[in-house]
Design a protein around this nucleic acid. Structure first.
Lengths: 176, 176
DNA sequence: TGAATTATTAGACTGCGTACATAAATTAGG
DNA sequence: CCTAATTTATGTACGCAGTCTAATAATTCA
């Protein structure tokens, strides 16, 4: 098992047992069998351990868009790679971890990263926040849905179709 | 001058002079003529000092919605109260302060607060992120526009009109 | 004026995140 | 197989954010 996965498991266990605030990086590292210093070789901050999967997906998106794919194609590719049955625990167990404002704060970093991705993909300036809202809305409703979930790709398309009429032609060209 | 305004001024000066990361709460408090301990009587966190005006507006929104106004009325009221010529410095000077991820993180907290407001105002579940995107898009484009700005209310109405067709009837009822 | 309430302050403490130096482990080449 | 180079893991010290508690000043009010 890769060390970052071991960190995720150890952290999630502790967060669910004791809460996020009451769990120190020391404890996470100890349970994962590494030192505190090594923790920071895998995660820059304590909250990063919640978002490993999401950050990986965002990195994929950036890579795909860097190789001249359209936003639609890149989204489709990354969305298809997400398993329907196992979603990031931050999406399903966030209340149980007692995250408080750390959830919204660390989510904000990922939201901004996605915003930059959208803005750099050909979506028009005045459409970026709308597209962001549609995509995140789809992601959230997908993550919150009970298993068995439908395919994420379908939900994404559905949400984006709803705002198609509100978008400029360049935006439509990259998204449809 | 209220002490929180003095804190804002002192903090903004220092952030612009030295950057956000290189400015300690001690320095902010000292320049504002208070002690570090007192700083925390006015702001819970260092980044809160960036968002005093925004948090005040959000609190107004919550108050107005608590007194049975529709979301449209509450938004209109709060938006009309924002001066066109003076916007929160976090919106216009964020790059110069070297905020880094702290901007997205602290913005995420406010975004989530606004999301909760929208969700509690009668907007349908599946429309919340879309409405949030439209509203934030309007706010951002308003804040980024050069002076003299048009009225925020107009921009808000304009952005919301664009997604009207995508919303359910309950959402439309609270927003139009 | 004196009491009660509130605002301010000092100081100690936990823990995050950084910096830097050191040591172990892995890989590569001869 | 051994050594050198590189990567990965670790120890330690530090600055600073945010919390807590207790004590002091300032303000309000009877």
């Amino acid at each position: 098992m890769s060390s970052v996965a071991a960190l995720e498991d150890a952290a999630m266990e502790l967060f669910l047992e004791q809460g996020y605030q009451n769990t120190s990086i020391d404890e996470i590292a100890r349970r994962a069998g590494i030192s505190r210093a090594t923790f920071f070789n895998y995660c820059d901050t304590k909250s990063d351990v919640l978002w490993v999967d999401v950050d990986r997906a965002l990195a994929s998106l950036e890579t795909l868009l860097g190789s001249a794919l359209s936003l639609r194609e890149a989204l489709h590719s990354v969305a298809s790679a997400q398993p329907r049955e196992r979603i990031p625990l931050v999406a399903s167990q966030s209340e149980a971890m007692g995250l408080g404002d750390e959830l919204a704060a660390s989510a904000g970093v990922r939201l901004d990263r996605l915003r930059l991705i959208i803005a750099g993909s050909g979506v028009e300036h005045q459409d970026v926040w709308l597209v962001l809202g549609a995509i995140v809305g789809a992601l959230v409703s997908w993550a919150r849905a009970p298993s068995p979930r439908e395919e994420l790709v379908g939900l994404l398309d559905e949400q984006l179709q709803r705002i198609r009429g509100a978008l400029g032609q360049h935006s439509v060209a990259t998204l449809f």
